[in-house]
Simulated assay, not measured.
Amino acid sequence: MGDVSITVLDGDTLRSLHVSLREDTVSLTGAQVLDLAESEASRSLLGLSLPQHLKSSALRRMNIDGVDDDVDFRRKELSPEEASRKLNEYLSAIADELKDNPLVASNLDGSALRMLLEDEDDFAMIAENLFTDLDTEDKGMISKREIRNAVVNMGVEMGVPPLEEFPLINDILKKHGAEEEGELGQSQFAELLQPILQEVADALAKNHFAVIHNIKIVNGSELKKVLANEKKLNDVIAKIKQEKDNGKSGHKSTEIIKDFLEKNGKELGLPPSEANEAVILLYDAVFADIDSGKGASEEEDEFRKLVTEILEKFAEQLEANPIYCDLDG
């Protein structure tokens, strides 16, 4: 089946990027500097438009925080030297933000659709499933106009870009009469769907479309920030200690810590405990590494060391094996 491949954008391609201004540049506004940096970054990131949250986070790393700071910077006139410095500082900030919070993207070039169409069995199965989903009344017939919904339902996972962002698909649907009146049986549906998908694949081969998946990669970077911040770490330890003191004295310390992290770990940069099987394996791996003799620790200093050790092991495991969390799921 022609599933699309994914690319993790972690900022590496931006780190070697150094943009120079034209020699005849007299001055630039902050807005021009940001636009130029974003354009250069986009070219290095599959041509993607940078998400607003990425741009905002990168600006905060440059101490440009909030609407007022943003407006003031955009209006400011910068000398060529200052503009060049700010431009490359912004690119570095984008790279740093991507290192902590990578994006998961795909470059849709039609190859996934071509693979699907070349395999008759795969295509027949997909067409049958799409038809069945659309035949809600189980009549064995659907409106011809449902072809549009079939293409939409295939989605990025099968190599079809969103219609609102790749409007050429609308022209292809119209060309093949998908907006006309009439009904289709399953075989007629498949016969009409096939050339439509072929043309979409051809269009993508000429004009690639990059898309960001709604997936978060948990790689331990947020947890490391907690470990590096004494106040935040103390707050976490105090909350877990409170759980221990409030009626859970009969439980092992490791059990109390694990229970707390499963419920509150997302706030610390851990993946949601219910995300997927990989998270279960992560917890098993971390707590299997903890010396069972520490589980009954009652001393405050020992308890603090135990919590810190567990969080450090989570950070190590996530750095070595990041976990992908589907935010749509």
Rank of each mutant, 00 (worst) to 15 (best):
G2R: 05
D3I: 14
D3V: 14
V4C: 03
S16N: 12
S16A: 10
S16W: 07
V19N: 04
Q32Y: 00
V33I: 05
V33Y: 01
E40K: 13
E40R: 13
A41L: 05
A41M: 09
S44D: 07
S57I: 00
R60K: 15
R61T: 11
I64C: 04
D65E: 12
V67F: 14
E77H: 11
S79E: 04
E81M: 01
E82S: 11
L87I: 00
E89C: 06
L91T: 08
A93F: 13
A95Y: 05
A95L: 07
L98M: 05
K99G: 05
L103H: 04
V104H: 04
A105P: 14
N107F: 12
S111V: 08
E118V: 02
E120D: 15
E120H: 15
A124K: 15
M125S: 14
M125I: 14
F131I: 07
F131N: 09
K139D: 13
G140Q: 02
M141C: 02
E146K: 11
A150I: 02
G155M: 04
M158F: 11
P162S: 04
N170S: 11
G185S: 07
S187L: 09
Q188H: 09
E191H: 07
E191Q: 10
L192S: 14
P195C: 02
I196P: 10
D202N: 08
A205S: 14
G220M: 03
G220L: 01
G220V: 03
S221M: 06
E222W: 01
K224P: 04
K224A: 06
V226D: 10
V226A: 09
L227W: 09
A228R: 14
L233T: 12
L233E: 15
I237R: 03
A238W: 04
K241L: 12
D245I: 11
K252T: 07
K252F: 12
K258C: 11
F260G: 02
F260D: 08
L261Q: 13
A278N: 11
V279P: 13
A285N: 10
I290G: 02
S292A: 12
K294Y: 13
G295T: 05
A296C: 05
E299M: 08
E300L: 10
R304S: 13
T308M: 05
E309S: 07
E312Y: 06
N321D: 09
P322A: 01
G329T: 10
G329C: 02
